[in-house]
């Protein structure tokens, strides 16, 4: 099982990314309340919790969609100022959103390079080179991918997800945020994505995985951080806990006392 691999993760050095005492309120509601989490290279950390537990808000602060009211973010031990998605990208933080990731009316290459188009000296978009690059990376990630000219609207869920993931990989992401990457996928496509995650892990990326499926988290993650009502219940080594322990944390907010 994957759990054996979690022992191989070296957590003695500086974390890849660290979020310290993050708080964010929306009109009096504490969506995130003094939460601290971290992530080491080659590690997958699951973020668990009910809808409205605050995990999406927390992750949107890291990806630059929201700004925290207080607390700080450190990347490689250095304080990072992330005020926009562009800033996040400059720190090699890439986010794969469950639904909002792609512009449906554009083709795979345009989506892959969205916001970072390759242009020639005259500022003209170089579609041919972008498509060639897309074909190159797709042949690595999803060799069956053929529909390069079609708008991504016509792609299957798995194909769309591979476009989203290829985008992160192409731009040398070091920190990857995945928001329910397999929620809309069939069994085979889920398998494809989880293999991809193992591959990225081997390359030393750190991955935050938001998922509702405890099974999935037990299978793919090294550690799990559980949130409830905006607060952090605790962070545990997945290998040390049972599914019931995790469920207890999510539903009751009860820490099994094996915090990592």
């Amino acid at each position: 099982m994957m759990s054996t691999e979690s022992t191989a993760i070296d957590r003695s050095g500086t974390p890849l990314v660290e979020m310290r005492n993050i708080t964010k309120t929306f009109g009096g509601v504490r969506a995130v309340d003094d939460v601290s989490i971290n992530l080491y290279p080659g590690e997958v950390v699951g973020l668990l919790g009910h809808n409205g537990a605050g995990k999406s808000t927390l992750i949107k602060i890291l990806s630059g969609a929201y700004r925290a009211d207080s607390g700080e973010i450190l990347v490689d031990g250095q304080k990072a100022d992330i005020g926009s998605p562009r800033d996040a990208r400059n720190y090699n933080i890439e986010t794969i959103y469950q639904t909002l990731a792609l512009a449906d009316n554009l083709d795979a290459a345009s989506n892959l390079f969205l916001g970072r188009e390759l242009t020639n000296r005259m500022g003209i978009v170089d579609d041919a080179t972008m498509e060639a690059e897309t074909r190159k990376i797709m042949s690595r990630l999803n060799p069956n991918f053929r529909k390069f000219a079609a708008p991504v609207k016509s792609l299957s869920g798995g194909q769309r997800q591979s476009v989203a993931i290829s985008r992160a990989v192409y731009f040398n992401a070091r920190i990857l945020i995945m928001d329910e990457p397999t929620a809309a996928l069939g069994v085979q496509e889920t398998e494809m994505v989880s293999e991809l995650i193992q591959e990225l892990k081997k390359q030393g990326l750190g991955i935050f995985l938001i998922d509702h499926d405890i099974h999935q988290v037990m299978r793919m993650c090294d550690r799990a951080s559980v949130m409830k009502n905006g607060e952090l219940v605790g962070t545990v080594n997945v290998a040390d806990v049972t599914e019931d322990d995790l469920l207890g944390m999510i539903i009751l907010g009860k820490n099994p006392g094996k915090a990592a």
Binding site: S63, A65, S84, P85, R86, R89, T95, Y97, L100, A101, L102, A103, D104, N105, L106, S110, N111, L114, G115, R116, E117, T119, G123, I124, V125, D127
Partner: peptide, 28 residues
């Protein structure tokens, strides 16, 4: 036509129309 098809501005116009959230999250 050149603006629409061959410049970043045009690409962003169509991306924003297709999915404003995706465009924003892409740093546009």
């Amino acid at each position: 036509t050149v603006t629409a098809r061959k410049t970043r501005l045009g690409r962003y116009i169509f991306a924003t129309g297709g999915n404003p959230d995706a465009a924003e999250l892409s740093g546009i």
